[in-house]
Each structure stands twice: as C-alpha cells, then as structure tokens.
C-alpha cells in the first residue's frame, strides 16, 4: 500500500490585508475548508479562474505559505512543523508562471545546479544530476547557453530540470504555460507528462487551459477557495453547465459535443479529444441509415464543421 503523496484536511488560509497601521487587518479567505488526497504517481490538475485560490494552494504545498488552520501533509511530513521546511521543499518542487523570474543563474547548467547546491549535494553528484535532469527535459544540448537566449518554453523546461535535479517525488506547476506560445505550451506539457510516466513523479498541474487537463488522472476545480468539482476529466467535463457557472470553459471539442447533444444528437457526455469525437460521430453516421431528411442535413452541417476542425 503506497502512502498518499499529499493529504489535505480542512485546510483554511486567510490573507491579511491591512490598509491602515492601527486598524485591525481585514481577513480575506483564499482557501476555504479544502480536503483532498493526492496519490503517489498521479497526474493531478487543479483548475480555477483568477482568484479561485489555486495558486495559494500551490504555495501551501511548497510551504511558501502556511495554513491558517487545518493540516497539510506532504510525503508524510506536516507543513506546520518548522524543521520539515527544507525536506518538504525538496520532496515537492515548484515551477512558477514567469519563466524569467525563476531562473537564478546566467548559464543553464548553473541554474539547474542551484537547487542541489542549496541542499548540500556533493559536487560530483551535482554534475550527474544536472546532466540527467537536463536530458530528461530534452535541454542537454543547451547546457552552456544563457537563459536569456532561450524561448519561453525552453526556459520553462530548464526550470523543470532545476526542480528535477533535487530529485523530488512531486512537482507542483503553477500555471507554467500561461506566458508561453502554443508551441512552448505543447513542449512543456509533453515534458511534464513524460516525467510523470517515465520517472513516476507525482504532478500537480495548476492551469486554466482546459486542453492540458484532459490527460490528468484526476481533476479538481476550485472556485472561491473551495473545491467545486472533482473527479476524472471525463466526470468533470461532463458537467458543462456547472463549469460555465463557475466561469470556466471546457475543451472546445467537449463544448461542441455538449451543444450537439442539447440539439438532440445522441452523444455521450464528457468527450475530451477530437479523435474521440470523430469516432462517436462516425458511429452515429453508420447507424443513421433510416434518418429523416432534416437530421441528415444536420449531420451534413456537422461533417463540414468537423472537417474545418481537422484542418
């Protein structure tokens, strides 16, 4: 029986906002009674719009913030205990949104070595780790380069390598693709998925891009500091109306399927990828020999929309 990577119980976090020196600071609840468990080796996605508390939650895992009340256990260690600070940060590495603001050194390999240096890894071992983690994100070729000359996606992969060099069991990525172009986004997500599959690193991906969530083992949707929805991507994205209520989109293809279903087409809930959608439509097409003229027209319209999408 594996131990869970992260156990959260009734976690509450309040930001204190003091406008005036003498006044009692105002309390703003960022995380409101969150309870969840992340199993070791899982790929977890946390969704939510701005201000939903998802970034605050990420910072809790890395002990950049401490719970106001409730408990948070990372790899068997309580984040409230001061002496667990460094071990927890080593266990659960963190990648931030802005690629420029998290690279410390002026040479890629020196930056990747920064984490191991901090935790007192011997020199020979640092070199081994740097090489290994740079090649695991496909950036070994750039080891002598200056980070300034890399693209956003490449910088973000260097940042991931920097975390991997500390041999974490878990990586928390706080909107790692928010500032990247589509190509960079794809690269980063592919890298993260590969680390999850090959190195069995637990991944907690915080994002507001729905497309990145489709591959997750489990999705948590946060709204106003609470967990509003949770489950597999299929379960979560089946609830299109509820997601929209929270102010979130669903993947484009899921939305299309949902709308078609509303129009009366017998499609299943929670279609996540274009391939899946095509399959379902083709099934429909084959079984519609005795269709009425109007529904055939509808299907024709659908076909053209489908072919546009596949371009």
């Amino acid at each position: 029986m594996k131990n869970p990577m992260i156990q959260v119980k009734n976690l509450i976090y309040d930001y204190l906002i003091s406008k005036n020196e003498d006044e009692e600071p105002e309390r703003h609840r960022a995380i409101d009674d969150v309870t969840l468990t992340v199993e070791t080796g899982d790929f977890i996605a946390i969704l939510g719009h701005n201000g939903s508390g998802k970034s605050t939650f990420a910072k809790q895992i890395n002990v950049l913030l401490k719970p106001t009340s409730g408990t948070l256990i990372v790899g068997g260690m309580d984040t409230a205990d001061e002496k667990n600070l460094l071990p927890i940060r080593q266990t659960a590495g963190m990648v931030f949104q802005n690629p420029d603001n998290q690279i410390i050194a002026t040479i890629v390999e020196e930056d990747v070595g920064f984490g191991p240096e901090n935790i007192g890894v011997p020199t020979d071992e640092i070199w081994k780790r740097v090489e290994k983690s740079l090649s695991s994100v496909g950036m070994l070729h750039y080891r002598k380069h200056s980070p300034n000359r890399l693209s956003g996606g490449q910088k973000q992969r260097v940042a991931i390598a920097g975390v991997m060099a500390m041999k974490p069991d878990c990586i928390v990525l706080d909107e790692p693709t928010a500032m990247l172009d589509p190509a960079g986004r794809k690269d980063v997500i592919a890298t993260v998925r590969e680390l999850n599959e090959k190195e069995n690193v637990t991944v907690i991906l915080i994002t507001h891009y729905m497309d990145e969530v489709v591959f997750a083992d489990k999705v948590f949707v946060m709204d106003a500091g609470r967990i509003a929805l949770q489950g597999t991507p299929r379960e979560v994205f089946s609830q299109v109306e509820k997601l929209k209520e929270i102010g979130l989109d669903v993947p484009q293809v899921t939305e299309l399927a949902h709308e078609l279903k509303e129009e009366g087409l017998p499609l299943p809930d929670g279609i996540l990828t274009p391939e899946e959608f095509r399959e379902e439509i083709e099934k429909l097409w084959q079984s519609s020999a005795e269709m009425s003229p109007t529904s055939i027209l509808k299907e024709a319209d659908l076909k053209s929309r489908l072919s546009i999408r596949s371009i």
């Binding site: 890395n62 940060r89 080593q90 590495g93 920064f114 984490g115 240096e117 901090n118 007192g120 975390v163």
Partner: peptide
C-alpha cells in the same frame, strides 16, 4: 526559497 535556498549555510558548490 522554493528551491531550498536558505543562505550560504551548508551549501555545496557545483563548480
């Protein structure tokens, strides 16, 4: 901080 930086104490060197 997230990468365990805590000053020069107990720090090793890559180079």
């Amino acid at each position: 901080e997230a990468r365990c930086y805590h000053g020069g104490e107990g720090r090793t060197k890559m180079k």
